[in-house]
């Protein structure tokens, strides 16, 4: 089962991210996948906004991961925003220990996360960013974690 949402512009991608925050619960790990430049960071910026992150969210391509404190009523107090595009081995991804860090009331968004999906295990959500011919993007949400999020996901996809 998957949920799709078409985004005609970067602003739409950000709005999709912002509204996606309502799908999230503490402990979630979300793997963002799609070719270079397909909108993963733009989406993450939207999620950060939806989670009440005050500071500017930039691409963590070079730092691998950034932590952002959140203020919201979702019980989520920290956003771990990672980008594993540059990792050479899975050991580096494991070193980040994201799957365990999120247990402290946090969520993790991992750009290029699907290349290291074996580190994260089964209970993740995948957001796929597909480039369309008109330069818009279709976001496709799937994964085992969606099973108990059908209601908010239906709502998210219908916007």
């Amino acid at each position: 089962m998957n949920w799709r949402r078409y985004c005609a512009s970067a602003e739409d991608t950000q709005a999709a991210g912002q509204e996606f925050a309502r799908v999230l619960r503490p402990g979630d790990v979300i793997l963002l996948s799609g070719q270079l430049g397909n909108g993963k960071t733009t989406f993450a910026q939207g999620v950060a906004k939806g989670l009440g992150v005050r500071e500017r969210v930039t691409s963590p391509t070079f730092t691998m991961v950034r932590q952002h404190e959140c203020v919201n009523d979702l019980g989520i107090s920290m956003l771990h925003h990672a980008d594993v595009y540059r990792v050479e081995s899975l050991v580096e991804v494991r070193e980040l220990a994201l799957g365990e860090l999120v247990e402290d009331g946090a969520v993790a968004l991992v750009e290029w996360g699907e290349i290291a999906s074996s580190v994260f295990g089964r209970d993740v959500m995948n957001v796929d960013f597909v480039l369309e011919e008109d330069e818009g993007r279709t976001l496709v949400v799937s994964g085992a974690l969606t099973l108990d999020r059908q209601e908010p996901l239906n709502q998210w996809a219908s916007q």
Partner: peptide, 9 residues
């Protein structure tokens, strides 16, 4: 683990 890295374009 390592095999997945070949899927990175």
């Amino acid at each position: 683990a390592v095999a997945n890295f070949t899927t990175r374009q």
